[in-house]
């Protein structure tokens, strides 16, 4: 943009010339998009290269912090040999049902509490108190309740997810503007129609945010719980913690990287589902996509 100030005139006139973005919006958008993609790719690449450099040059001890190339090579070998997949499936088999149970429960309770002030008054103090309990501390309790199998881990994920979704749902329903409810009432909407056509569409975008946050937290929790006690000694958390016990830092870093990938994919899956379910919501097109 160019600004020209004409001196020696009785009135100061500002002349604004259109910038490149205005002269050729299509090209400007493409350039902007390329810049964003370039930055999104370049930042992690540069970080990885620095890490590789530090390992190669001996600035860091590669026995404790293996080089990225070593981690990738080991991970690739483990994946090709089929060593990695049983642990990935074991973790997913705990996260997905736990997440589903927790999300459904949290959504239902959040809706109830968001729509009914009496239920909210009855349950909110108790749930608030339980919310701050470190969820991992519940694992031994769940183990005595459900035994040593998969159930305590699934329950732990479910409880963790429940609270995130419950809070997001309740807050979203409470935040639905009165005007929306009044409009529904004017049109004679019954309780179901009010829920179906007013409360659900208005609150769902915020609920999806809670679901996305809890997806990441669900992965965090299952990894920690598998590190404490993993059924059949399987799961990515077991891989990480067992490798640490064995001073096998290469395997530990492979586990960490795979967990990161699983977490990103899971979170992106929930984001995608959210976009499909809430086409009316403001667009969130993912990282690096403004």
């Amino acid at each position: 943009m160019t600004v020209t100030v004409k001196d020696n005139a009785p009135i100061r006139v500002l002349v604004r010339e259109p910038g490149a973005a205005e002269r050729d919006p299509g090209r400007a958008r493409t350039r902007r998009r390329l810049l964003e993609i370039g930055l999104a790719v370049a930042v992690p690449v540069v970080l990885l290269l620095w890490w590789q450099l530090a390992a190669n040059q001996g600035w860091i001890d590669d026995r404790l912090y293996p080089a990225p190339s070593t981690i990738v090579a080991d991970g690739w070998t483990d994946a090709a040999d089929g060593k990695l997949w049983p642990d990935v499936w074991a973790t997913l088999a705990r996260v997905l049902p736990g997440y589903a149970i927790g999300a459904l429960g949290g959504f239902a309770v959040g809706l109830l509490m968001g729509t009914n002030a009496l239920i909210r008054a009855a349950l909110e103090p108790t749930l608030d108190a339980l919310y701050v309990v470190p969820k991992l501390a519940l694992l031994p309790i769940f183990m005595t309740m459900f035994g040593l199998g998969e159930a305590p881990h699934i329950a732990l994920v479910a409880v963790t997810v429940f609270f995130f979704v419950w809070i997001a749902t309740m807050a979203a329903v409470i935040a639905v503007p009165d005007g929306y409810r009044e409009a529904g009432a004017v049109f004679g909407a019954g309780p179901w129609q009010m829920f179906r056509h007013v409360l659900l569409p208005a609150s769902l975008p915020q609920v999806m945010v809670g679901l996305r946050i809890s997806a990441g937290v669900a992965v965090l929790v299952i990894i920690a719980s598998e590190g404490i006690a993993s059924p059949d000694n399987k799961g990515l958390g077991y891989v990480i913690f067992n490798s640490r016990q064995l001073f096998d830092n290469r395997a530990m870093f492979v586990g960490i990287i795979v967990v990161a990938i699983v977490g990103v994919l899971f979170s992106e899956l929930i984001r995608h589902v959210g976009r499909l379910c809430t086409p009316w919501a403001p667009r969130d097109r993912g990282p690096g996509q403004s």
């Binding site: 290269l49 620095w50 450099l53 190669n56 040059q57 001996g58 001890d61």
Partner: peptide, 9 residues
């Protein structure tokens, strides 16, 4: 530099 040789510290 990353592709270069390694040192052992």
């Amino acid at each position: 530099a990353a592709c270069g040789g390694s040192a052992d510290s």
